[in-house]
Amino acid sequence: MSSNTDFQTVTESAFLRGFQNLVRKEMGGWWKTRKGWVNLVLWSIIPAGLLIFLLFVVPAVAQVQRPLEVMENGGVVTLGMTMGTSVFYEFGMQVFGIMAVILSLDLIVSEKQNGTIHWLLSRPVQRRAYVLSKLWVNAISILAVVVVVPSVFAYILFTIRTGTPLPVIPFLKGAGVMMVHTLFYISLTLMLGVFFDQSAPILAIALGSLIGGMLIGGLVQRLMYITPWALSKYAPALVFGNPFPLEPAILPLVASMIWIVIFTVAAVLRFDSAEI
């Protein structure tokens, strides 16, 4: 038998013991399996295909069938951009949120149910490292697949449609808002995965917030300031200089970021004392 003295021992902060190795495992779960690549292809084709349809096909068909109406709407370019940006930012952000919930749903629950978690946590691993590695890798991967890739396609297609490149900084700010919105739902779902042992209540709460939020926010306007529900209007406002739906405009963005921190801290604290 070889000796343990032949090895270089892991040098890692005791506070986050096991984090690096768990990150490697989570990355493998995304990118060494079909999961990451299937999602990447899916989230390249669907938004790009939809945008091509809205930016180019629909205005061209409308121009042939209802030329007067198209002219009243500012021409094929304006009509295409109006439809394309509205769908990409407002409808798209909701869809990205739903995808974030679906992709984060089983991160912890499935390992609780199948017992992998017992084996993992019997290793020299801090529990906070387990939770944070899940959040870190899945946030990066989901944001890359669900927000970054579609945004790159959107930027290229918007530029082709308008004939001039869109200003980069406002576009990046818009993408940033989409990321905060998506990250809110990733962290919420992850936290719920710590609190619940079944997927159903997680799905109900996360999707309830996402879909029901707009309705509730419509009834109680003040909730829009402290939730991410108004953010779908923010991204197009930043990119195209439209007016913000709420003033002070920064409040829902800051509130969403604070929620992300709260969800993360709650997940870590709860998991630290959980009975596995």
């Binding site: 070889s2 090895f7 892991v10 190795n21 020299p124």
Partner: peptide, 18 residues
Amino acid sequence: EFTLHFYFKGPANKINQR
């Protein structure tokens, strides 16, 4: 290899040997 990396980071040949 994943399990061993909770304890040791290398060297690679020793990891493979184990």
